[in-house]
Simulated assay, not measured.
Amino acid sequence: MSRRVNQLEQPPLTLEQLANQLPEIWQNIPQHYINNLIRTMPNRVIALRRAIRGGPTSARNVKTLKEKVDVIEIFNKDKLSVRDLAKRFGIGKTQAADIIKNKDVLLSKFHSNINVNEKRSFLREESRNIDRQCYEWFIRARSKNIPLSGTIVKTKAKEIADGLGYRTFSASEGWLQKFRTRHNIAFRTISGEAASVNSADVTTFWEKVPSIIKNYAPKNIYNADETGLFFRAVPNRTHLKRERCIGGKFSKERLTILFCVNIEGHKERPLVIGKMAKPRAFKNINVKELPVTYRWNKKAWMTGELMAE
């Protein structure tokens, strides 16, 4: 109730205003939310009793997916018995046995794009069906580099629910946040360059990395990447409150910057590439004394000559 009161456009300032608004707030609480509170009340009472007695509020030490994989790795490495695994990780023997029994399923989930810190899934059957189909659709769409906003995902989830006959399903903002958390999804600005990378090539390269670097000392293993700095561009996102979102053209004035660092954390001097040999801003400045190395070409791009240098 307090959260819904705080979300009002005009929160009550007096007790009288609060008393007048509470009935309407109560009526707008979804029935399924109230039903869930009623359904979980016995567990809440049990947890409260345990807390009063000074014991744990949960009878079972529930492990996250990542922690379960740790159990599996120790089992495979040290060949421990179920009893020893239970003692080492502070869990019951039954739980340890279940983890080993379902290790293939757990490892499959771990290597998929799922939230590895999730402990349990409390989704009901109808919610699991919607979640599964929506996630499969999401993966297909992103494999084709189709941009998906939160509104699009919620609309698709509602469409799936209607197709399955679940008329009471509400694709709310809360549902979207939990969907993102379950599947480790983040909504970000799209990078055009990243979309051109072949994931199969990336996987093949990472398999070769250990053999490539095995004969080099850590101080001689570097990672370098370049980025574009549009120093005159305004932000391409904004928070709105009851006004039109109107924007002009984005400035394309840019610098290219190359960053380089080794495994030990030693950072090389950044390389900055501009379009002019002597920009106006460099007047009366000794370029060699800048904390960066400055080079230039007509397009401010990284070239083979600059990389070789």
Results as ranks from 00 to 15, higher is better:
2 S>K: 13
17 Q>L: 04
21 Q>H: 05
23 P>I: 03
30 P>Q: 03
31 Q>C: 03
33 Y>I: 07
36 N>E: 15
44 R>K: 13
47 A>T: 06
52 I>K: 13
55 G>F: 14
55 G>C: 12
58 S>C: 06
58 S>M: 10
66 K>T: 07
67 E>H: 10
71 V>Y: 04
79 K>Y: 12
80 L>Q: 06
83 R>K: 13
83 R>F: 04
84 D>H: 10
99 I>E: 02
101 K>W: 06
110 F>P: 01
112 S>P: 03
119 K>A: 02
121 S>G: 06
126 E>W: 14
127 S>G: 01
134 C>R: 01
138 F>L: 08
141 A>K: 15
143 S>W: 08
143 S>R: 15
146 I>L: 14
151 T>P: 00
157 A>S: 10
162 D>G: 03
164 L>V: 05
169 F>L: 03
175 W>S: 01
175 W>R: 01
175 W>F: 07
196 S>E: 15
197 V>C: 02
198 N>M: 05
200 A>H: 12
201 D>F: 07
203 T>W: 07
215 N>H: 11
218 P>E: 11
233 A>G: 02
239 H>R: 14
252 K>N: 08
256 T>N: 12
262 N>R: 06
272 V>F: 09
274 G>W: 05
285 I>A: 02
286 N>W: 04
287 V>T: 12
288 K>R: 12
294 Y>P: 04
295 R>I: 00
300 A>P: 06
304 G>M: 10
309 E>A: 08
309 E>F: 11
